[in-house]
Amino acid sequence: MSILIHIPTILRALTNDQKKVNSSGDTVSDIVENLECDFPGIKDRLINNKEVHGFINIYLNDEDIRFGEGLNTQVKPGDAITILPAVAGG
């Protein structure tokens, strides 16, 4: 099952400058693992302590997975994932 993933500018150095990539998996966690195979180093930028990294937002379609099932969120054919940098500070 192929899922479209939108990659933010800050991570494109890891995806050979590709703005959109495809990966597969039944959950967001699976997809991140598969992304790591294709684009080594990306997992560390997306996950910290088995949760979505605090510097990153991951959306399944229109929803931030942090407010749902997190990395265990199930994905279906036709879903799209968008990764954005979290914008925060003090």
Binding site: N57, D62, F67, L84, A86, A88
Partner: peptide, 8 residues
């Protein structure tokens, strides 16, 4: 922290 939904 930007509201993540609004940010998307």
């Amino acid at each position: 922290r930007f509201c993540s939904k609004q940010q998307l």
